[in-house]
Amino acid sequence: MNQPTHDDHWLVQPENIRRIWRVFYIVLAATVLAQLVIKVKGYFGIDGWFGFAAGYGFLCCAAMVLVAKGLGVFLKRPDNYYDG
């Protein structure tokens, strides 16, 4: 049924995308759980906490996207802005 064709690559089929997400969640969980056995050396205390890098990475990125989105309201212009 779902034979991968030139226009319907296996990578874009919904069930495969779901499968990739599942693998991704497992890897994410594994990187955090691995901290139970592997010690992360914290240089300033807080960065040695359990799952610190995971939370810090996620929150920083979320903050950057929000800041970019906010600044975009003021900074974005149509891409022919300077042509006129």
């Binding site: 991704f24 890897v27 994410l28 990187t31 955090v32 691995a34 901290q35 592997i38 010690k39 992360v40 050396k41 960065d47 799952g51 610190f52 890098a53 995971a54 939370g55 810090y56 990475g57 996620f58 920083c60 990125c61 979320a62 996207v65 929000l66 989105k69």
Partner: peptide, 23 residues
Amino acid sequence: GKVLFYLQLLLFSGLAFFVMLPW
């Protein structure tokens, strides 16, 4: 430890990207 720290940092950044993709 360093590898694990960076894997956490980067992979969860990746998660943030796809979660916030509509934005």
